[in-house]
């Protein structure tokens, strides 16, 4: 496979994951904002913008953090080059680049959903329309992943696509957790100050984990359990441990196909790569924020190593 094609597959799936995670974050933000007074609602939108890393570009474009301005900025505003409409455009143009290595079912799922979304996002999104957009984005992900699972050859292209999915997903979960880490500091809950259940619910909602968490923890809400769930539990498909293991599976598959281990294999062999080997206590000892920062840096390094090992660009 061409390096450029591999790059197309990798980024097609990163952008798809990013668009879907962004949609979920907006959905959770809206829900939170609706249940709060004006000032806390503004705080919520502020944290959504920060989580997405859009603080400076948003503040350059707008004075207030009102909901409609935020979601329109995130979804479609040209002042935000990283808007969701652009992400979906990038999914499609990367799919076109990799067209010879995706099935026509995958391509049609991309193209059809892109047409609908691009049309939806060509006009400002009202509060009542936001739900439709989020639903469409979520279904787009499901359709493309479904077509992929059912029709794609399990060769290197599949590994590049999935490595992209899981690196991006891990990044997203880590960012969401990091934005709210101070709410989860054990000191707060240990001293009995009531953990803001709305806040933690929002975190779980942002990663589509509310019901899985409840199922495992029977309604108990505490910081160690949330951290355990989102970081260490390799049964939950958006946890850091699950995503890292999935990246490992696909990179091992690639190394086997190529009969060669590259820089990314070395990174995966490093101790900090083994997320399941940590404990909640150790993470809190290190500091949750520090732990997440380190995780994200390692995640980025793996992505860069793949780009180099498999000659994506040169």
């Amino acid at each position: 496979m061409l390096g450029r094609t591999a790059n197309g597959l990798f980024w097609m799936f990163r952008y798809l994951e990013r668009a879907e995670n962004t949609a979920r974050l907006l959905e959770a933000g809206l829900r939170m904002a609706l249940t709060r007074d004006v000032q806390s609602a503004e705080e919520e939108w502020r944290s959504v913008i920060s989580t997405l890393g859009l603080k400076s570009s948003f503040e350059a474009a707008s004075d207030t953090y009102d909901g409609a301005t935020v979601w329109n900025f995130v979804l479609r505003d040209r002042a935000n080059p990283a808007n969701v409409r652009e992400m979906m455009g990038a999914v499609r143009s990367n799919a076109r680049t990799a067209r010879t290595h995706i099935s026509s079912q995958v391509w049609e799922a991309v193209n059809e959903n892109w047409m609908k979304l691009d049309n939806q996002l060509s006009r400002p999104i009202s509060q009542s329309a936001l739900g439709d957009v989020v639903t469409r984005l979520r279904r787009t992900g499901m359709e493309i992943h479904g077509a992929m699972d059912g029709t794609i050859l399990r060769d290197e292209g599949h590994h590049f696509a999935r490595a992209g999915t899981y690196l991006e997903r891990a990044e997203s979960t880590a960012r969401i957790l990091d934005m709210k880490y101070y709410l989860l500091l054990p000191s707060l809950s240990y001293v009995g100050s009531s953990l803001d259940t709305g806040q933690w619910e929002q975190v779980l909602r942002s990663v589509a984990g509310v019901s899985s968490y409840s199922w495992i923890n029977h309604g108990n809400i505490d910081a160690p359990s949330i951290v355990e769930f989102l970081v260490l539990d390799d049964r939950f498909p958006r946890s850091l441990a699950f995503c890292r293991n999935a990246v490992r599976v696909h990179l091992t598959g690639l190394a086997r196909l190529h009969e060669r281990e590259g820089k990314c294999s070395a990174l995966l062999a490093a101790r900090e790569s083994d997320i399941s080997g940590h404990t909640v206590d150790a993470i809190f000892d290190q500091g949750l924020h520090e732990f997440l920062i380190e995780f994200m840096a390692h995640n980025t390094a793996i992505g860069e190593a793949i780009t180099e090992d498999y000659r994506f660009l040169a």
């Binding site: 496979m1 061409l2 390096g3 450029r4 094609t5 067209r99 010879t100 190529h258 000659r311």
Partner: peptide
């Protein structure tokens, strides 16, 4: 390219090496 099972290359994927036209794949 898809229907033929051939690679779809752009000029930037190709280079002349050792008197042959070669394409940059994930294996070199």
């Amino acid at each position: 390219a898809d229907q033929m099972g051939a690679e779809l290359v752009e000029g930037s994927d190709l280079r002349v090496i050792d008197g042959k036209v070669q394409m940059r794949t994930t294996r070199g």
